[in-house]
Amino acid sequence: MAEMKAEYDFSKMKSRKNPYASKLKKPVTMRLSEDVVDYFKGMAEEAGVPYQSLINLYLRDCLAQNRRVEIKWPSAA
């Protein structure tokens, strides 16, 4: 088995773009309540991650758990 070097010189490597980068995330514009943004920013700061990533993780969890929103509108009398 080959041993790992103590150091590697990556300065001569050619960089290339990730071919999957455009498929990883899609930029969207959303309007969120200020208290919602503050909530996620606070949690994100505690976790040490960007708040947009945290919102994405939360929504991904909703997707994985197949959560559905149940909206009950007040009935017009």
Score class of each variant (00 low, 15 high):
Met1Lys: 10
Met1Gln: 10
Ala2Lys: 14
Ala2Pro: 14
Ala2Gln: 13
Glu3Val: 15
Met4Ile: 08
Met4Gly: 03
Lys5Asn: 15
Ala6Ser: 14
Ala6Gln: 09
Glu7Val: 12
Glu7His: 08
Tyr8Met: 15
Asp9Cys: 06
Phe10Gly: 04
Ser11Glu: 04
Ser11Asp: 11
Ser11Gly: 10
Ser11Thr: 11
Met13Asp: 09
Lys14Tyr: 06
Lys14Glu: 14
Lys14Ala: 14
Arg16Cys: 07
Lys17Asp: 06
Asn18Asp: 14
Pro19Leu: 02
Ala21Gln: 10
Ala21Ser: 15
Ser22His: 08
Ser22Val: 00
Lys23Trp: 07
Lys23His: 11
Lys23Glu: 14
Lys23Pro: 00
Leu24Asp: 07
Lys25Met: 05
Lys25Leu: 03
Lys26Cys: 01
Pro27Gly: 07
Val28His: 12
Val28Gly: 03
Thr29Ala: 05
Met30Ala: 11
Arg31Met: 02
Leu32Trp: 02
Leu32Val: 05
Ser33Tyr: 11
Ser33Met: 08
Ser33Val: 11
Glu34Phe: 05
Asp35Gln: 08
Asp35Arg: 09
Val36Thr: 13
Val37Asp: 05
Asp38Asn: 09
Asp38Tyr: 04
Asp38Val: 13
Tyr39Phe: 14
Tyr39Thr: 13
Phe40Lys: 03
Phe40Thr: 01
Phe40Pro: 07
Lys41Cys: 04
Gly42Trp: 03
Gly42Asp: 09
Gly42Ile: 03
Met43Thr: 04
Met43Lys: 13
Met43Val: 04
Met43Leu: 15
Met43Asn: 12
Ala44Asp: 01
Ala44Val: 01
Glu45Leu: 06
Glu45Ile: 13
Ala47Leu: 07
Gly48His: 07
Gly48Asn: 02
Gly48Asp: 01
Val49Asp: 00
Val49Ala: 05
Val49Asn: 01
Val49Lys: 03
Val49Phe: 01
Pro50Cys: 12
Pro50His: 15
Tyr51Met: 00
Tyr51Asn: 04
Tyr51Ala: 05
Tyr51Gly: 00
Ser53Arg: 10
Ser53Glu: 06
Leu54Tyr: 02
Leu54Ser: 00
Leu54Glu: 02
Ile55His: 00
Ile55Gly: 00
Asn56Trp: 00
Asn56Met: 06
Leu57Glu: 12
Tyr58Asp: 01
Leu59Gln: 00
Arg60Cys: 01
Arg60Ile: 08
Asp61Phe: 05
Asp61Pro: 00
Asp61Ala: 14
Cys62Tyr: 12
Cys62Phe: 07
Leu63Trp: 11
Leu63Thr: 02
Gln65Leu: 13
Gln65Lys: 15
Asn66Glu: 09
Asn66Gly: 04
Arg67His: 11
Arg67Phe: 04
Arg68Lys: 13
Arg68Glu: 15
Val69Ser: 10
Val69Gln: 00
Glu70Asn: 10
Glu70Leu: 11
Ile71Ala: 13
Ile71Gln: 01
Lys72Ala: 05
Pro74Met: 10
Ser75Cys: 03
Ala76Cys: 12
